[in-house]
Simulated scan of single mutants.
Amino acid sequence: MVIAQQLREYAGLLEEQGEDNFRPRAYRRASDVVAALNRPIATILAEGGREALVALPAVGEAIAGAIIEMVGSGRWGQLERLRGELAPEVLFRTIPGIGPRLAGVLAEEGTLETLEDLENAIHFGNFALKGIGPRRKQMIASALAERLARRSTPYLWKKSSQPPVALLLKVDRAYRDKAAAGALRLIAPRRFNPTHEAWLPVMHSKVEDWHFTVLFSNSRRAHELGKTKDWVVIYHQRDDEPEGRSIVTTSTHGSTEGKRVVRRDLLQRNAEPTEPIAPA
């Protein structure tokens, strides 16, 4: 019942924050399906894995991933993001082998937010952290595989598409213009916000067949460099693919100085390198 309630809350926050297309309806339909089940969703997951969730009406890959995260950790990063409560270091500490220090390092620059991010980093990214040997890395990878109900090799995971750079820059411009005009809902992030001020604008939009959620970066690094109003984090999703993430910043050096550049999330499979394009 808690998972059904969280799916419904997510749908409500999407609507409250300006999302006016089918995504809220999709999450609300999934909430109704989960609430009407005659046995716990955790039992269905334990017996049949991710495939059993996807087989349920109104529950595709994206919502199945959300349910798995909630069942495994009691948290849901996407919901916490919209609430302004996202704290990756707390989530990472739920994984055996990750203590407070390592969790803080993983979350410090805002590169990793979710267990999916962490799993991708271990298998495809740069996870060569000091003090993390092969045995500990394997323990963390095994715990993540179990938590995320991975029953096959990670190289067979469903791929997430990447929006065209021109489209990301268009979304970046729209977000910054609306934020400057005070036209967006403000949320009060819990991290790095001791006064609990509602300062972080959030925008939801649909362009072509892409769904976007856009916020300024609230990472430690962005605060340290005074870039919280320059670094734009764009979460993107199409159809029922996993959510992806890109960052748009103003370049400060080289041939792209003064231009907005798109930095693909290199933790994703199939991610492309940094693509500097278009004037700010």
Rank of each mutant, 00 (worst) to 15 (best):
A181P: 04
D172P: 05
A11W: 08
I277K: 08
P201L: 10
G65S: 03
H236S: 11
F212L: 12
E15S: 14
R245A: 13
R23M: 09
W210F: 13
I140Y: 05
G254F: 03
Q17M: 13
E89I: 00
G110E: 01
D265S: 01
I122H: 01
L215F: 06
P273R: 05
R238F: 06
L14E: 08
E257C: 07
A278V: 12
A174W: 11
S246G: 09
E89H: 04
L186Y: 02
A128T: 06
L53M: 04
R135C: 06
F127N: 06
G49T: 10
I132K: 02
H123R: 12
Q5C: 10
R245K: 13
I122E: 01
A128M: 06
R221H: 15
T153V: 12
P88E: 00
A128E: 08
R136M: 05
M1S: 13
S142T: 15
A179K: 03
E119N: 05
I187E: 00
A52K: 09
A26K: 09
P189G: 01
R75G: 04
R39P: 04
D20E: 15
P279L: 15
A174L: 14
L91K: 00
E243Q: 12
H236F: 15
P88Y: 00
Q5F: 14
Y10E: 06
V165E: 11
A58E: 13
R150P: 05
I187H: 02
G104D: 07
A36H: 14
R8Q: 14
L112E: 01
A145L: 02
R25Y: 09
V214R: 13
D172H: 15
K178S: 12
T114M: 02
G226N: 12
E109Q: 04
Q78H: 02
R147Q: 14
A103D: 08
V171H: 11
G18I: 08
I68M: 03
Q138G: 02
I247C: 05
A181M: 04
P96H: 04
F127L: 05
L186T: 07
G99P: 01
K178G: 15
L45G: 06
G49R: 09
Y155M: 09
G258Y: 04
D230P: 00
E15D: 06
F192Q: 08
I41G: 10
P164N: 09
T195R: 14
S160F: 03
T213A: 10
R135L: 14
P164L: 09
P194K: 11
R23N: 04
L186W: 07
I234N: 00
S217F: 02
G84E: 00
R93N: 04
L215C: 10
P24W: 05
I63W: 02
L215T: 15
S161L: 14
A26W: 12
D172M: 14
R147P: 01
P164G: 07
S161G: 15
A174P: 05
F22T: 10
E85H: 00
K227T: 10
V214G: 14
S255F: 10
L86R: 03
K206V: 15
S152H: 10
E9H: 11
A30W: 12
A278Q: 09
A128Y: 03
T274A: 08
D209A: 13
V202L: 04
D239P: 03
V202D: 00
L82E: 01
P201T: 14
P242F: 03
P194H: 02
R28L: 11
M70F: 05
A222G: 05
T94I: 07
F92A: 01
L45Y: 08
